[in-house]
Design a protein around this nucleic acid. Structure first.
Lengths: 213, 213
DNA sequence: TTTTGTGAAGTTTTTCACAGCG
DNA sequence: CGCTGTGAAAAACTTCACAAAA
C-alpha cells in the first residue's frame, strides 16, 4: 500500500503526542481526540493510522501504548542511527545539546568543523575533526546520517566530502541555498529564513486570522 | 485569483535563487532552467509565476532582475517588519547573528529571556528584557512578529504573554510540541527533530535513491 | 451505543499539451 | 524557431458517510 508524504509528516506528530500521553498515564484515545489536539480531522487521523494496519478497537479507540509503539516501529527501525554533525556553530551546538535529540534513537558519532580552535576538542562528549577527515571518519564509523549546519558556501563541498565516504544515506540540511545531492542519498531541508518569508506573506495576506495550519 | 499554499513555498525558493543569479550578473533565465536548479518541473514554475501576472517574455524567458523584484513584492511588503525573539539560547543566537536574516526586511527590536544573566544585556546590539515585560515592550514598539525559541514547556506561556500585547500578528515557532494559538495570529512551525524523524523514515523506505524532493 | 476502517466523493495540486507571442 | 501562459486532464490528498465491530 502506498503511503502519502503528508501522512508521514503527521505520523511524526502523532508519535510525539502519544509519547507525551503515555508518560501522563493515559491508556486510551480516540481519533477525534487526537485530531482535536493536533488540529486535524478525525477521519484524517483514522485514514493515516489505517495505512499501517488495523490497530484501533471499534467503539473504544486506540490503546495509547500500543499505538505509540506501532507508529514508532513504522517511523524508524529499532536500530540506533549513527549521525555526524558538520558545523559546530550556534545551530549545531543547539542540536548537539538538545535533550530530545540525544535521547532518540540517534547517536552523535563525530563532529566536523573548519575552525582550528574547535578541531581536536570534544563537545558534549563528541570529538571534532577537520572537514578533510570526513571521508575516512565516516567510513570507519559507518555513519549514515549527516546534519549539515555549515555556512551556505561550504555546504556543497562538505556534502560532497561526506558522500565520498560511501556510507552516507541521508542528510538533514540546515543551510540555505541550493544543493546538488548525489543519487541514492535522501535529503530533508530546513530553511528557517524561508519559513520566515512564508510567515510574512501569510500575515500580509491574512488580515483576518487565516493561516497555513 | 487564489494562490495555493505550496506555490508560496516555491516562490520563496525562486526568490532566493534569483537573488543569487542577479548577484552573479545573470540577465535572463527560462522556466526550465529554474526548474532544473530547484528540482521542479518547468510547467510548475511557469504556473506558479503566472499567478502573479505575465512577467516573462515568450521565446526568451524571464528577466532575472525584474522577476526577482516582482516576486519580492509579492512575498513581502516594502515595509520593514519589527520582530522580537523569545529565548536567547543557541538557536536564538544563531538567528540573531545570521547575516541573511539581519539584512532582510526584518528588524530585531527586542529580546526576551528568563535568565537573569541575560536580562538587561545587549546581544548583537539588541536589548534583552524579562519575559514578563513582553506585553509592555511589544505594545510600545508595535512588534508584529515573534520568534519563539524557548524550551517547549515555556512556549505556551510565552506565546500567551506576547499575544496579550495586542500587536502580534505572526509567530515563527521553533519549539517542539503542540501550541494553542490565539485567533487572528498566523503561526509557522519549524521542528527540526520532526524533520530528522521524517528523514529516518525516508531512508528506511528508500533503498534506492527515492527521496521526498 | 460508540468509534473504527474504508470505499467513494470531493478538493487541491501537479502535469500535460498546445495556442499565442516575440 | 523558442518559450511563456493557460485551460484541461491527471494525480494526489482530504473529507464524507456508512457498514461493521466492540
Amino acid at each position: 500500500m502506498k503511503v502519502a508524504e503528508p501522512t508521514i509528516e503527521r505520523m511524526v506528530q502523532y508519535h510525539r503526542l502519544l509519547e507525551t500521553l503515555r508518560e501522563e498515564g493515559r491508556r486510551v484515545i480516540s481519533s477525534r481526540q487526537i485530531g482535536d489536539m493536533l488540529g486535524f480531522k478525525a477521519s484524517q487521523v483514522r485514514k493515516d493510522l489505517s495505512y499501517f494496519g488495523e490497530i484501533g478497537r471499534r467503539g473504544v479507540g486506540y490503546n495509547v501504548e500500543r499505538l505509540c509503539d506501532h507508529i514508532g516501529s513504522v517511523l524508524s527501525s529499532p536500530k540506533t542511527w549513527k549521525i555526524a554533525l558538520a558545523g559546530v556553530g550556534h545551530i549545531g551546538t543547539a542540536l548537539l545539546t538538545n535533550k530530545a535529540i540525544r535521547s532518540s534513537r540517534l547517536s552523535f558519532e563525530a563532529l566536523f568543523d573548519i575552525d582550528p580552535e574547535k578541531i581536536g576538542n570534544e563537545f558534549a562528549g563528541v570529538h571534532c575533526w577537520d572537514f578533510n577527515e570526513m571521508p575516512d571518519v565516516m567510513r570507519d564509523r559507518a555513519i549514515e546520517i549527516l546534519i549539515l549546519a555549515v555556512p551556505a558556501r561550504e555546504a556543497q563541498k562538505c556534502l560532497d566530502l561526506a558522500a565520498s565516504a560511501g556510507t552516507l544515506r541521508g542528510v538533514l540540511a540546515l543551510t540555505q541555498g541550493t544543493l546538488m545531492v548525489p543519487d541514492g542519498i535522501t535529503i530533508v531541508r530546513v530553511d528557517i529564513l524561508a519559513e520566515l518569508e512564508k510567515l510574512m506573506f501569510f500575515i500580509k495576506n491574512a488580515p483576518e486570522g487565516a493561516g497555513p495550519e
